[in-house]
């Protein structure tokens, strides 16, 4: 066989290589380079063919370009979403790269239609591409059905869109992971453009006592796969954010939106601990039920509430530090 990286050789290498992708790729490269220099052959060297192009599987069934796109996400500021019983909150750690940036401007959590928000971690322009497509999808849905798009349908459509960017070698995958938060109206909505109330007798096609609407949270990855979440985290500090989210027992569905906002702020502050040397801004948005603070719309958390949440978050961090110090001191004393 003319191609030097036969299935067997590569599989062997891959098995031996470290579990970590980066290490594995590095190992592959070194190996390949060594071999190509030892055994020069005509034409282009094809050792690294599996990770240089999108839409190409490696012999063990992976798309390296998608995995590299995930790397881009892992370097971005932490983004989280919390699904509460009466709404959803999105929070973002926005790293301040320069003093010259206008404080408080450069919003990165975007509104889709009126009842949904999107936050992304990873390449900023890719996040904006995602947002603009999501807005188009929502508008398209409205043209078709004269009603707002359900959050689940938006997640599904956007999942398909992202997935399409893993299929062709003429494009690259999205370097973002996006969290979509939405509140689907629990009330019967008027059809867009409706001018009257319709017939006052008969069912009029409506099902009685049907429950619909509520809070929804989805996260879409560069591969296009997505899941629904109670609490989602992505970006640099996702590990610590995830473990904090798990402590909230979100599956019980008891956490209120007001509490959720405070928790979200606290979690972002905790996630920021690892990159403490850099300044950051906290951006938070929420969407509540129709009788909640945002009346079913996706909006920025008002400054007052955000600042209070930030105050509590800082305090919680300090308390933790003191506790640890006390513990450490206590431990030392005991040792003494």
């Amino acid at each position: 066989m003319a191609v030097s990286c036969t299935r067997e050789v590569l599989l062997e290498e891959l098995r031996e290589a470290a579990v970590d992708v980066e290490a594995r790729v590095a190992a592959l490269q070194v190996e390949a380079w060594t071999r190509s220099s030892l055994q020069p052959r005509g034409g282009i060297s094809r050792e690294l063919c599996y990770d240089l192009s999108n839409s190409v599987f490696s012999p063990d069934g992976r798309n390296f370009q998608v995995e590299y796109a995930v790397k881009a996400v892992e370097n971005g500021g932490t983004a989280i979403g919390i699904r509460c019983k009466d709404g959803v909150v999105l929070a973002l750690e926005k790293l301040v790269s320069s003093k010259l940036l206008k404080p408080g401007a450069n919003k990165r959590i975007a509104t889709i239609d009126r009842n949904m928000g999107v936050v992304s971690a990873g390449l900023l322009p890719d996040g904006r591409h995602f947002t603009s497509r999501a807005r188009d999808e929502a508008a398209q849905w409205r043209r078709m059905y004269k009603a707002p798009i359900p959050t689940s349908s938006l997640a599904d459509r956007m999942g398909s869109y992202i997935q399409a960017y893993t299929l062709y070698n003429s494009v690259r995958p999205f370097g973002v992971t996006c969290i979509i938060a939405g509140w689907d109206s629990e009330a019967e909505l008027a059809v867009d453009g409706q001018v009257g109330s319709g017939p006052t007798v008969g069912a009029g096609g409506k099902v009685d006592k049907m429950k619909h609407g509520g809070p929804f949270l989805y996260m879409i990855e560069p591969s296009g796969s997505y899941w629904g979440y109670y609490g989602a985290a992505t970006g640099k500090g996702r590990q610590s954010a995830k473990s904090e989210l798990e402590k909230l027992n979100l599956t019980e569905g008891t956490l209120s939106l007001e509490e959720g906002v405070k928790e979200a702020a606290r979690i972002i502050y905790i996630a920021h601990e690892d990159s403490k040397d850099k300044d950051f801004e906290l951006e938070m948005t929420w969407v509540s039920s129709l009788d909640g603070p945002t009346k079913g719309r996706h909006e920025e958390v008002p400054k007052k509430i955000r600042e209070e949440a930030e105050r509590l978050a800082k305090k919680a961090l300090e308390d933790d530090d003191e506790e640890e110090e006390a513990k450490a001191e206590g431990g030392e004393r005991m040792e003494e």
């Binding site: 980066e22 240089l52 881009a72 370097g175």
Partner: peptide
């Protein structure tokens, strides 16, 4: 550097 020939290729570190 094999990853810098076009704008549709990510490097292993996620850079373009």
């Amino acid at each position: 550097n094999n990853y810098d020939n076009d704008s549709v290729t990510f490097s292993p570190q996620g850079r373009i």
